[in-house]
Design a protein around this nucleic acid. Sequence first.
DNA 1: GACACATTCAGCCGCGCGGCTGAATAATCA
DNA 2: TGATTATTCAGCCGCGCGGCTGAATGTGTC
Lengths: 100, 100
Amino acid sequence: MAKRDSKARLDAYEIIFTALAHPARRRVLLTIHFNGGSMTAGEIAAVFAHAWQTTTRHLQVLEGAGLISHEKQGRMRVYRIERKRLELVKDWLAWFSRKP
Amino acid sequence: MAKRDSKARLDAYEIIFTALAHPARRRVLLTIHFNGGSMTAGEIAAVFAHAWQTTTRHLQVLEGAGLISHEKQGRMRVYRIERKRLELVKDWLAWFSRKP
DNA sequence: GACACATTCAGCCGCGCGGCTGAATAATCA
DNA sequence: TGATTATTCAGCCGCGCGGCTGAATGTGTC
């Protein structure tokens, strides 16, 4: 059980760090955050020079990592940032404060 | 000047997050840390199943990101972790604590 | 100097990431 | 219903990452 949790956590680190590795995805997170924490897919896509479809995939990667979530609202989807999930990065960094 | 600094910082985020994206490289950092902060290349390579050369490249990526540094000591190279550099990740995360 | 050891350099190769385009789905409006 | 808007799904493709092997470099030991 504890073992499985630890495994799950390792996997979480993996997808989270991978998600954060791409500059466009980091910008997406910052963009949503500075827009008050939520934005529609269209608004997000409009910020970037890429084709929307490209941004869509980035959104999916971020959502797969649990860093954002979405909710249908009429015909648009509103993406919301999941700040708690970012805490995991802090948790990982905390290892380096812990004396060995 | 301030502009250039901000640009430099953006680039730093880029290479740091890219460096941290690979699980092997994160493990390298943790391994060095829990070994007291420094290890020889051979000791590090021995931890991994990969060919040494593969680990060498990971070390170079980490060094390029400023997350580790090395120092020649006789015929071996000792790698040392640069904890300060990891702070930049915290700095980036701090944006999300800042209310927009 | 000759040899062994520690590590890196150079270069090959497969696979997945991230860009694109074109079609599909879902909801709203006339 | 049919047209329009918002968004995603499906699939193509080029390029770089990350694995490998083989050779080179540098430094102690005899």
